Simulated scan of single mutants.
Amino acid sequence: MSANKINKTAITAAAAAVLLSLSTGAHAQSSVTLYGELDTGLAYINNVGGHSQWKSTSGLVDGSYWGLQGIEDLGGGNRAIFRLERGYSVTTGEMFNDHPYYVGLGNEKFGTVTFGHQYDLIHDYFAPFTLTGGTGGTAFAHPFDNDNANNSYLAANSVKYASPSFGGLTLGGMYAFSNAAGQFANNRAYSFGASYQNGALNAGAAYLHANGRGNTSAGAFTPVVLPSATDVFDAGVQTQNTYGVGVSYAIGDFTMAAAWSRSTYAGVVVIDTGESAPSIGFSNYEVNGIYQLTPTISLAGSYTYTKGSGAHWHNGGVQADYQFSKRTDTYLEAIYQHASSGAPAVINTADPSSNHNQVLIGAGLRHRF
């Protein structure tokens, strides 16, 4: 081989080594992760419109979804982040707009600001103290998910701030724009929250306010589902206020928690007919517990009393989960709901019962990737 060829080979090898070192350094500072979850199973519901029902389920505990999450180190304790998720039904293939997507900037000392379609602060600071916001999942939601602890809706056009921890205390705020010209407050929302952790003790509180909910298609929130005497309907709401406070305490392998929330809806309009409906409010009182029986078996249960405007609901349930591995588990659960006269019994994910009682028994398999 000639000296000229040897020099060219050496230069090419050196250039390749430099490019490899640069790409390796960039990879060490930045990452993109593909992840998700599939949750599917079977459920029996004793009364749906006067008939028993067997059905194949998707998302009985967690909504199935896939996502991409990325982070780029910008230096000086700064980072760029993004998150893109999409929900879907494992049984039908239908896609759902029920997961977040956002981009933002974070700093180790000052916190994180994100822009996009995001969870409100009820989800971040209150829901973890309910069973629906934790291991219980979808079917354990308070009636009609009236406080959004099961994140039935996310805030579009939102700007959100999350603080770092100050001795166990974290704070957050969110504003979601209406995006309507000349109608700044028509279908806008804002939310605040805080949490505190000290050893086995955790506590959190959150507030959500919305104006003109469902009035426009490009605003902060879609319409809300509310109950009539025997059924449920999609509603636009002029003013919504939701408050939530929760606390939990861990004793060895057992964690007990209590949560209270209050949701009010005024200026209610039935979407299908345009007719006005009475204002309605809900107060939810929940106690729950989770016990890690063995490293692979966990048990959970909850009871919620919901006082509505002229009606009330008792909702109780239990759940057992067996972990095959860190990514795959199976679960069995049972939920019972009793409604007073003048109110429908509707377990979350089910259609209304023809009377004031409803039972759901479900089993499923989950896999995370």
Rank of each mutant, 00 (worst) to 15 (best):
S276P: 14
D329L: 14
A334V: 01
H314Y: 12
R327T: 02
A266V: 09
G317Q: 07
A277T: 05
N288S: 13
D329H: 14
V268C: 05
V268W: 04
Y265L: 04
W313Q: 06
F282K: 04
T264A: 11
V287I: 14
V270P: 07
Y285C: 05
G317T: 00
G316Q: 05
Y285H: 08
T328R: 04
L293G: 05
N315I: 10
K307S: 06
A334Q: 14
Y305K: 04
T328K: 07
L332H: 03
S276G: 14
Y291D: 09
G281K: 15
L332P: 06
S298R: 10
Y305R: 04
N288G: 08
D272R: 08
H314R: 05
K307H: 09
G316D: 00
G317N: 03
G310I: 00
H312A: 10
N315G: 02
Y336C: 12
Y285P: 02
G310N: 13
G316W: 09
T264H: 14
R327W: 06
P295H: 05
G281C: 13
V269R: 05
T273E: 01
T296A: 00
G310Q: 10
Q323M: 13
D321E: 14
V287T: 01
H314S: 10
T304W: 11
D272T: 13
Y303C: 00
H314G: 12
G274E: 10
R327Y: 06
T304N: 01
N288K: 15
K326L: 14
V287A: 10
Y322I: 04
Q319G: 09
S309G: 11
V287M: 15
G308N: 06
K307P: 03
Q319H: 11
T264E: 13
I280D: 10
I297M: 00
Q292W: 09
Y291V: 08
T273C: 02
E286A: 01
S309I: 01
S309M: 06
S276W: 12
A334I: 08
S283Y: 13
A300S: 02
A311Y: 15
D272S: 14
T273H: 01
H314M: 03
G316V: 09
P295N: 11
D329R: 10
V287G: 11
L293T: 05
V287F: 04
V287P: 02
Y331E: 07
V270I: 12
D272I: 09
T304L: 10
Y336N: 07
G289F: 04
G316Y: 11
Y322P: 06
T264M: 10
D329Q: 05
T304Y: 14
T328E: 08
Q319W: 10
P278G: 12
G301Y: 08
Y303W: 15
Y303D: 01
G308M: 03
T330C: 13
Y303N: 03
I280V: 14
Y285S: 01
L299K: 01
Q323A: 15
K307G: 03
D272A: 15
E275I: 15
A300E: 10
E333R: 14
I297C: 02
H314C: 04
V268E: 06
